[in-house]
């Protein structure tokens, strides 16, 4: 039970990713495939975000404190107080990539539909053979 509670985020991530992967590989509707792709990518984004998350931490900007005479107070900086911003920055890039892929995929789906008059992969393959 402890294991599940401690790794709750990762378990959710695995479930989301596997749902997406299953959908991409086994569904026959092209739009559903693309939706599954978006779900898969969201799973990866959650994975990255949750690895960088830290309870009670703040953004890595050092807030300068001043005393009554407006002189800066020397502070000790604890790295434990700050969350690693790297994963979130990486995921900004990954989100952009994901949006581009999804847009391209939808444009392609439109072309496929105007070409074959169907969005079902099995029907399209049947009409081709």
């Amino acid at each position: 039970m402890d294991y599940i509670l401690n790794h709750f985020n990762y378990i959710i991530v695995v479930i989301i990713m596997m749902l997406g992967l299953w959908g991409m590989l086994s569904l026959s509707n092209l739009v559903k495939k693309l939706i599954s792709m978006a779900i898969f990518q969201t799973g990866i984004i959650l994975f990255y975000i949750s690895m960088g998350a830290k309870k009670g931490s703040s953004i890595p900007i050092i807030k300068q404190a001043y005393d009554d005479h407006h002189h800066p107070i020397h502070q000790t900086i604890n790295h434990i107080d700050y969350a690693n911003p790297l994963t979130q920055i990486l995921m900004l890039t990954a989100i952009v990539v994901g949006v581009a892929t999804l847009g391209l995929g939808l444009a392609l789906t439109q072309r496929v539909y105007s070409e074959h008059k169907s969005l079902n992969e099995d029907e399209i393959l049947e009409s081709l053979s």
Binding site: G105, L108, V112, E115, H116
Partner: peptide, 13 residues
């Protein structure tokens, strides 16, 4: 188009 779509899915995976 349909070949590229499959490539897109596999490439993304």
């Amino acid at each position: 188009y349909i070949a590229t779509f499959n490539y897109l899915i596999m490439g993304t995976i």
